[in-house]
Write a protein that binds this DNA or RNA. Structure first.
Lengths: 182, 182
DNA sequence: CTTGATATATTACAAAACGATATATATCTG
DNA sequence: CAGATATATATCGTTTTGTAATATATCAAG
């Protein structure tokens, strides 16, 4: 989804500043299906404001820079609902990690092993973090995506753990039948 | 991975034209971890040629436009191996589909059901296509990523099929415990 | 007590990627 | 024989990405 629609979606959960939107988008389950930086969010908000899809009010804060709090206008809410009726584009993944595994042949064994172990650790950290914010996710759609994400991480962790040796050990035959589903 | 490294990787499997690189990148298992268009590939190849990392030779073809066939130079091969030693950046996903599921509350039930059924069909088509090109994937790393991709699609298909009703049926309670792992 | 890390908050900008379109030809399908 | 698909490359405006700059506040460690 483009940055503008993501901002509309985040604001449909309640008014927020650009910084707060970024934080929301970085947490599960939002984080499972997109990745957006400040460089996309602020220009998107400016344009949405120019188009009248969001309104903003500056709030002076004690001992902090002012914050611009954005909220959806009726037109913004309409635009969001229109966007939800468009047929979804195909998913896209960018994974340096899978690229490295694909290129295993040209990589030093030790480095490859380290990369895989590191990834398993990262997944464990992610799963632990998800357990912490689990209670905040109650709405049906949010929960669905949250659990899908969690199941995916568990699947990936299992696949890596069970098939690591198949990839790393050059002495055994590369028989695909020995790869387990994870 | 940036487009230049992807081109180097594709060329490490043998010389090819820009068009052929694009085709390779669109097939499993390459397609599982990246997505690159002509608009990225041709500029990348031009720059790689300027930097001496690839060489090109124009081949006149009968009844077809000329094709520029690129191949790795020794410096290009070196650059690729250096890139493989860099720590991989975090994965990034862009999924309009999961965004729609997340936004389920604001969507007409029928449309949501159609979107999910369509996705399951798409996965079936993808799995069928993978079965067709399975025999071409023999190298260890390629096979690993290929099977990981296939397992993922099967997992996702199962999750959607088994939990679709949980998401769609507003009359049952949204008890997360009723979601099955897929 | 002060240095450094983290958090709040926004903006600017170059580099890269994306999406669409243009161009030309050949082959395959209905 | 028309229309879709495949081969082959290039361009170009719009978006996105990554990084840094700019301020201020808090909190922990040395």
């Amino acid at each position: 989804m483009d940055a503008r629609t993501l901002c509309l979606a985040a604001l449909s959960l309640g008014e927020a500043s650009g910084y707060e939107i970024k934080k929301t988008l970085d947490e599960p389950p939002f984080h499972h299906f997109q990745d957006t930086g400040f460089g996309s969010i602020y220009p998107a908000l400016n344009r949405l404001a120019r188009e009248g899809l969001v309104s903003s009010s500056e709030q002076a804060q004690e001992r902090r820079p002012d914050k611009k709090v954005y909220s959806l206008t009726p037109e913004g809410r309409e635009r969001l609902q229109e966007a939800l009726l468009q047929p979804p584009r195909p998913d896209r993944v960018k994974s340096d990690f899978l690229f490295l595994l694909f290129m295993a042949r040209l990589m030093p064994r030790e480095h490859l092993a380290k990369v895989i172990d590191q990834r398993i650790e990262d997944i464990d950290a992610k799963l632990a973090h998800m357990e912490e914010c689990e209670h905040e996710v109650s709405e049906r759609g949010h929960r669905f995506v949250f659990e899908l994400g969690r199941s995916y991480y568990r699947f990936l962790r299992g696949f890596l753990l069970h098939n690591k040796d198949w990839l790393l050990d050059e002495n055994t035959p590369a028989d695909p039948a020995r790869l387990v589903a994870g």
